[in-house]
């Protein structure tokens, strides 16, 4: 940290100290080393295994609110309270080629242990807080999973299918009674399919399909009445899910004849071919037409987005 300024230090969300730095004065500094180790072993012509150890640090931190309402993401640097986040990862992978390198299969499994993880405390007030850091709590995290990728690298049809099954959690004193809970970015299932089919030297078709589990969020699970008002009941931090996200994009490409060094192509695309309304925000409210009911209202950003592009190289 570099002065000048006034910096509050918090312990378990309570201010314990205020540090005043003069202009140009150096305050808290952090040093991190990031050792990495990888080992590749070729079993034979078509098979290999890979082992990796790595420690990474992160000095800019994403703060995400966990409701279904307007996502209020913001970034924060290291401070007296916010320390560099560390991820210690061990991974093991296996790769095999098939049919004279036409296909390549990769399987990988990993386990990550994370230090200095950050999250908002319960009821954190993001709009009126004088000092955002007062609203933060710190703890540990873990992430583990398996990844599978099949690539087809030659002939008319090329592309890949990748699928990841994973879990990402945090454990922070003061949140979820100190037990492990889902990190917002926890997405147990993540699938993507990418392909390009070359019909003839001029025409080709490409597609992309993605599917992933919705983000972990905190939604009301129930409701009750107190002093004549409806109050929502919650279960645990990030124990609920946004709806699954999926989408298909398609495009058609036409290559014009080369003229010397000049190459050009025309591309017609359609984003979100089947018009999936993926959730951007979800809010909860009393039904305006029937006050005996409450409802969840979802907002989506885009349905179909067509595109035309002309590409050239010279």
């Amino acid at each position: 940290m570099l002065g000048q300024g006034k910096y509050n230090v918090y312990q378990n969300g309570e201010r314990s100290e205020t540090i005043i730095l003069e202009e140009g004065q150096l305050g808290r500094t952090y040093y991190s080393i990031e050792p990495r180790f990888t080992l590749n072993y070729r079993i034979d012509k078509v098979q290999s295994v890979k082992f990796g150890l790595a420690r990474n640090s992160q000095n800019l931190h994403l703060l995400s609110n966990i409701t279904g309402g307007s996502p209020t993401d913001q970034w924060i640097g290291n401070t007296y309270n916010v320390k560099p986040e560390f991820a210690n990862q061990v991974s093991l992978g296996y790769t095999r080629n098939f049919k004279e390198d036409q296909f390549e299969l990769t399987l990988e499994t990993y386990y990550k242990f994370m230090e200095n993880q950050i999250d908002y405390k319960d009821y954190a007030d993001l709009q009126n807080a004088l000092d955002l850091e007062e609203q933060l709590l710190f703890g540990i995290g873990r992430s583990y999973g398996v990844e599978m990728i099949i690539k087809k690298k030659t002939r008319k049809l090329t592309g890949w299918i990748s699928y990841t099954l994973s879990k990402t959690e945090r454990k922070i004193d003061g949140i979820n009674e100190g037990d492990w809970y889902n990190a917002r970015q926890d997405r147990p299932h993540d699938l993507s399919i990418v392909f390009t089919y070359q019909i003839n030297p001029k025409w080709s078709v490409s597609g992309l399909f993605v599917y992933n589990t919705g983000n972990a969020v905190t939604f009301p699970v129930g409701k009750y009445n107190l002093n004549g008002q409806t109050i929502y009941q919650y279960s645990a931090r990030n124990a609920n899910r946004l709806p699954d996200y999926h989408r298909l994009d398609l495009s058609v490409n036409y290559d014009f004849n080369k003229r010397g060094a000049y190459e050009s192509s025309l591309n017609f695309g359609l984003y979100n071919v089947y018009g999936r309304e993926n959730a951007y925000t979800i809010i909860f409210r009393d039904n305006p037409d029937d006050p005996t009911k409450t409802e969840a209202v979802q907002n989506s950003l885009f349905r179909w987005v067509p595109s035309i592009s002309y590409n050239f190289k010279f």
Binding site: N65, I66, T67, G68, G69, S70, T72, Y120, K121, D122, Y123, A124, D125, L126, Q127, T218, P220, I231, Y232, Q233, Y234, R237, I283, F284, R285
Partner: peptide
Amino acid sequence: YYTLNQITARGGGGGSTPANP
């Protein structure tokens, strides 16, 4: 009531991290 206000004032979330008061 302070925490209840935090979670209800903005339509049940959006500005704060919801939990039971």
